[in-house]
Amino acid sequence: MTDDHRQASDPAHARPDGAGDELVATVGRLSEALETVERARGALYEFHQLIGGAHGMLQDVVEGLRSTGHDEWAERIRNELLGCNVLPGRWTFQIVEEFDDGYYRLFRQIERGVRDDTMAGRRHVYEAELKASLWRPRVPGHDAAR
């Protein structure tokens, strides 16, 4: 980013004094990495809900197999698959909780600490500067602040 286009249009996203281009880009990359982890977390919750939905379907399958005279398969599903851990010792809610309480919490703490220490706690400084550098006065949709 050039010096001419560094100023974000609002103070909440302004570059702190002394923060150089490389630091702003690096902290922006860290925030982007956190956004990717947020997407992974969403996929993990989707996995949790999909497995739960499949579990509910299996209960219907057991009933259907029994009612059609396939008691052996119904019993095998009921005894072996219903209630089975998806990973050793864990159901999906435990996986979600361990992820949230471990890696996810640590990642958020570190990203916040780096931002607090280097960007005065400001979020999206890099993106705000990119927006400012692409701003075109009097062009619809290029409002300076929002």
Score class of each variant (00 low, 15 high):
118 T>M: 11
17 D>R: 00
118 T>K: 07
140 P>N: 13
23 L>S: 05
60 D>I: 09
48 H>S: 08
100 D>K: 10
116 D>Q: 12
36 T>L: 00
89 G>K: 06
116 D>C: 04
126 Y>A: 00
92 T>H: 04
52 G>Q: 02
138 R>I: 10
130 L>W: 00
100 D>F: 06
29 R>I: 00
40 A>W: 10
62 V>R: 11
97 E>Q: 05
118 T>C: 09
112 R>M: 07
123 R>F: 00
144 A>R: 15
85 N>K: 13
52 G>S: 04
96 V>Y: 07
8 A>F: 03
127 E>H: 00
4 D>T: 12
112 R>L: 10
31 S>Y: 05
52 G>N: 03
38 E>F: 15
46 E>C: 07
74 A>T: 09
18 G>Q: 08
101 D>I: 01
117 D>P: 03
132 A>M: 06
36 T>M: 00
69 G>S: 03
92 T>D: 04
28 G>Y: 02
99 F>R: 02
106 L>A: 12
9 S>F: 13
111 E>F: 02
51 I>M: 05
80 E>A: 07
66 R>T: 12
94 Q>N: 01
103 Y>P: 01
94 Q>R: 02
41 R>T: 05
130 L>T: 08
13 H>S: 12
86 V>N: 03
126 Y>Q: 01
130 L>H: 04
111 E>V: 09
133 S>R: 08
105 R>P: 11
54 A>P: 06
6 R>I: 05
85 N>C: 14
21 D>M: 09
137 P>E: 04
100 D>Y: 05
100 D>Q: 08
82 L>N: 06
35 E>N: 09
25 A>N: 09
124 H>Y: 11
24 V>G: 07
84 C>I: 07
48 H>F: 05
101 D>M: 11
92 T>G: 04
30 L>F: 14
33 A>L: 13
73 W>Y: 15
61 V>F: 15
119 M>N: 04
